[in-house]
Structure formats: C-alpha cells, structure tokens
Design a protein around this nucleic acid. Structure first.
Lengths: 181, 181
DNA sequence: TATTGTTATACTCTATAACTATA
DNA sequence: TATAGTTATAGAGTATAACAATA
C-alpha cells in the first residue's frame, strides 16, 4: 500500500459509501448483541410486530408491515416456530390465513432481545452527542418517509436518459465474459 | 390490512430499520441515475479510485482501498475491461501485480457518471434543508470512523451461547430445516 | 515463506413464478 | 377470479479455500 489515506479519504466523501457502511456497521452491532439470544435482527422485528398490538396478524400482514416478501416470511416463521418462539393457527374466520402468535418463550425472548437491541443502538451511537444522535434519527425518518416506495422496483423514478450517456454505451454486461488472463 | 399505520410506525422507530432503508433507497437513486451510463455504483467507485491520483494501482490496492474483497475485484475489473473502460497491464517491476488504468472511454464514462451520481445524491437529500444534509454527512462520517473495522468478521453464525440466552435456547437454526407440514 | 491474481465454492438475502387451498 | 400460504428456483452479493506465478 503506497498511500491508502488519500484513497479512503476520497471514498468517505461519498454519501453512498457512508450510508452503506453505516448499515453494515450497525448490522454488525445488532447481530452481535442479539447473538446470545439466538435471534437475528430481522426475526426480532417479526416478534415485535406480532407483539405490537392485540390484533391477530396473518403472515401476509406481518410481511407487508415489515416490508419483507411474503415468501421470505414463510421461512422466518418456520424457524421461529421450530424454536418454539411462535405458533401458527389457522384462522377460523378465513381458513386461508395463518395467524401467528407468540409463545411464552417467544415473549420472554422478545423482552430480553429488545433490551439487547436498545443497548446495541446506544453503543453504536455512542460517538455522537445526544443532539447529533437525535438529529440523525429525525433526518433518517424524514428521508424514509419522503422516499417511501422508492426501492420497490428499483428502476422507476428516474426513467430519463441524460445527455452524454453515449460515452459509456458499450456492450451491456454479460454473465460470463472471456478473461484476459 | 386492518391498521398497518401502527405497525409501520413501530418499525420506523428502529434505527436499524431506518438505516437499512436509507441504504436501499439511496442505492436505488444511485442505480437509476447511473443506469444510462451502464455502470453500477460499485464500478463507479472503482473508476474513481483508479483516477484518484497518478500512482498506478494494482487490483489488490484497489480492493483494499474500496473495502472490497480481492476476489470480487477480479470480476469487477473483468467487466470493466470487457466494456473497454479499463486496461490491465502487468507491472514490470513486480510481475505479480496487475496495474489497472483508465482508457479514454473509461475517463469519459467516469466524468459523466460522476455528474449523475452527484445529482442523484442531491435528489436523495432534497427533502432536507442544507444544514440537515450537512449534519447528516458529518454524523455518518463520525460514525464510520469511530466504528471502522467493526463489520470485518463480526456478523456471522451463532456459535456462542452467552449468559441470559436461556430464554431462547432452543434448537439452533439449520440449513434445510423440516417444516411443519 | 509470503503475496498477487485467479478460480471454484458456498452461503445469505432477495425476487419471481407456480402450485394448493380457500374465498 | 382473487387471495394466503407454500415451494422451488434463480439472481445478486459476499466470503473462504485452494492453486499458479512470482517475489
């Protein structure tokens, strides 16, 4: 490495780089914090939503509330059910629906893991003073709400073909291209 | 959907959810903006680093500067080379090294795509006033530098079973677990 | 022995299509 | 016909191990 400082400096000026690594770093914090409880961050989110209110939630409702695909939710519920944290019940009023409820163990796991999650978030935000941490949360929420629905089908909002696009108009990427050794 | 408002509200209070979706939404903005130029955000980062200074960069140096695995860099350079945007040269001083340089087309692509990237970032930050946008960048950079190296090998499987884990201490997750019916 | 580029492999996460049973 | 759950599959993205050439 000759002078990596310049190069990484260049990249940390990029918003995309910073946001991606914020996501990766926070995911590492959360994953480590939840590891003793045997749940993934995504699973904890599912448990939280199930416990959120008294209404009985079907798998489909859970999936759409979390922004998870309903086919992915099947496997998540499978895992949680195998570990005895949730139960599936056929809804008697609409026998297509699987109502998902917390077991005793699931409720206990939720309580403990939620505490660990909150601690992990605090640890991640520790380098910031309280105002900056609050401002970050507010800002992220503003952005989330303003752009909600943007990444559903990633190629939608910007269909425009900017001028000068011909500069890179070479053969589109293929799967297994020939290598130059 | 009975009352999704409550549920999504619950999730937007979670930092992990907000950061993840900030990443996904910004990635969608960047991906759409760069699509006319036929480059992915990751590839644009590689082009930028190559052009960053006069020093000749090997694949290994590019990879470590960007935080990309060196085996991943091989495929990225393959693609860029197939499209005529970069060239590989064997370094005469150390014949193990592949020095990567921009072609004329690569430099032109970089210029145009960089402009599109900057516009996409501005569009993403548009819901914020200037102070909030600047504060966000500063905060993200502070967090990145404070936690640098955190997500190297942190979030993986769940081998350890820590204290207080008894609440969820049921069978660990398997690959193709048997499903309930 | 260590390093660079490379290949092969595997694992995670996600997205799509199709099937079933219900409505 | 439409919807909920399910299954199978495929595509990204990433990580690891091993190998050849070179130092």
């Amino acid at each position: 490495m000759t002078d990596d400082a310049d190069l990484s400096d260049l990249l940390t000026l990029r918003l995309g780089y910073l946001v991606k690594h914020a996501y990766l770093q926070l995911a590492a914090f959360l994953g480590d914090a939840l590891e003793p409880f045997g749940v993934h961050p995504r699973e904890l989110g599912v448990l939280s939503v199930i416990a959120a209110d008294g209404a009985e939630r079907s798998q489909n409702e859970l999936a759409s509330a979390i922004g998870m695909d309903r086919t992915t939710m099947v496997a998540v519920i499978d895992d949680l059910e195998d570990r005895g944290l949730v139960e599936r019940h056929r809804s008697p009023r609409d026998r297509r629906r699987n109502v998902v409820t917390l077991t005793e163990a699931g409720a206990a796991c939720l309580r403990n893991a939620e505490q660990a999650r909150a601690e992990a978030e605090r640890a991640y935000l520790a380098p910031l003073d309280e105002d900056a941490a609050q401002a970050l949360a507010d800002t992220l929420r503003t952005l989330y709400e303003a752009h909600a629905g943007t990444h559903a089908g990633s190629a939608r909002a910007h269909p425009v073909q900017g001028p000068g696009a011909a500069a890179c108009a070479l053969p589109a990427r293929e799967a297994g291209g020939a290598r130059g050794k």
